[in-house]
Structures are given as C-alpha cells and as structure tokens.
C-alpha cells in the first residue's frame, strides 16, 4: 500500500497530496494518508465521497499519528 506522509502539512494539503498520488494506485488498490491536521479526519472521507473513491477507515501510524486509508474504485 502506498503511504503518503502529510504529518506536518496544514489543511487542505493532505487532501491535495492524496489527489496527486491517486494515479499511482491501481484500481482496487489502497493508499494511506498520514496527517496530524484535524480537518483530515473529515476531509479525507468527504474527498472520497466527492471523487467516487472508497474510504476504508482510520488507523494509527507507528508514531501514533492518524492514518486514513482509501481504496481506489476508479
């Protein structure tokens, strides 16, 4: 799974980086965004809804930072 490190990026950069990285993900594959930005918790799922991708859920990275997992549908 591709993981993008957006730990220190302010909103809306984690979502912009997610959109930029999506073409590298095969359809059916997953990508994770690691971000401290509190808006990412709402904006990654909202991005998935608006862009027709699937939001899988929130996990924690090894250093305890939230990690938002997305599955590419198209």
């Amino acid at each position: 799974m591709i993981e993008i490190d957006c730990r220190d990026l302010p909103c809306p950069r984690p979502v912009i980086e997610l959109a930029k990285a999506l073409p590298e993900v095969p359809v059916g594959g997953r990508i994770a965004v690691v971000a401290r930005d509190p808006a990412a918790r709402y904006d990654v799922p909202a991005w998935c809804r608006m862009r027709g991708q699937a939001y899988v859920g929130e996990e924690l990275a090894d250093d305890g930072v939230p990690r938002y997992v997305v599955e590419r549908l198209s």
């Binding site: 809306p12 979502v15 808006a39 709402y42 904006d43 909202a46 608006m50």
Partner: peptide
C-alpha cells in the same frame, strides 16, 4: 460541517 460529513476546507 464535520457533523454533516461535509468537506470542511
């Protein structure tokens, strides 16, 4: 916005 599931940025 968060409670509605809307985009917050």
């Amino acid at each position: 916005l968060a409670a509605m599931g809307a985009l917050t940025h």
